[in-house]
């Protein structure tokens, strides 16, 4: 049955009304959604370092870092005290999770020692892989104080695979992905190019 002209018109009108309503709502909510997303990202990043350990605007002082083996570049937030580098928060995403990307924040001091690791986003199995989340277990705490030489490179693996990091039962792939991502982030930070912690003024000019 071929719809009559009147029927087409009704359908077109409904489509038009829907488009107008959605455009209006989008306009109304866009700013708030942006704010929510930025606020979440900001509080996660600033939460990685003690507030009195740096005096610059952490979120405004970021650069990118390519991580060997990962397609996606990491974002590095640079903390400085009186202009001197003190620490950095690396926002790194690993594609090696059990079910897709795991996005981590790795805080390191200027010497390359881990200050803390947090999981921002993941889709790991509820009850198994999601125990990497800091609110579900203390597992992430074992990275604190580690660096590229502690343990030795061979030790950067889950203990199931001969490394030095605790494995969460039935979540070896997840654990391996996180350990691997932290190590790669540290390596990239160590072998950093001169853009990292370059003069903030020079950086701002170049962007």
């Amino acid at each position: 049955m071929i719809p009559s002209n009147a029927a087409w018109l009704v359908l077109a009108l409904i489509g038009l009304a829907a488009a107008i309503a959605l455009a209006g709502l989008n306009e109304l909510t866009r700013e708030r959604i942006d704010q929510e997303q930025t606020a979440r990202a900001m509080s996660a990043v600033t939460g990685m370092l003690p507030a009195d350990s740096y005096d610059n605007d952490l979120l405004d002082d970021s650069t990118t870092l390519s991580i060997a083996g990962f397609e996606r570049v990491a974002i590095v937030y640079q903390a400085r005290m009186a202009g001197e580098p003190v620490a950095a928060v690396i926002d790194v995403t690993t594609p090696r999770g059990y079910s897709g990307d795991i996005r981590l924040l790795v805080a390191v001091d200027a010497g390359g020692t881990v200050l803390g690791v947090d999981v921002l986003e993941h889709r790991e199995t509820p009850g198994l892989g999601d125990r990497i989340e800091s609110r579900r277990s203390d597992w992430l705490r074992q990275f604190v104080g580690r660096s590229l030489n502690d343990p030795e490179p061979a030790g950067w693996a889950p203990d199931r695979r001969g490394g030095e990091f605790d494995t969460l039962t039935s979540a070896t792939i997840t654990v391996d992905a996180v350990v691997d991502a932290v190590r790669r982030a540290l390596e990239a930070f160590e072998s950093r190019d001169e853009r990292l912690f370059s003069d903030p003024q020079a950086m701002r000019d170049s962007t």
Partner: peptide, 17 residues
């Protein structure tokens, strides 16, 4: 207003919106 022949597309449009 909904003629039978455009009923389902109209529903889908309303639901999606």
């Amino acid at each position: 207003a909904l003629a039978p022949e455009i009923r389902i597309p109209a529903f889908v449009l309303i639901i999606a919106t």
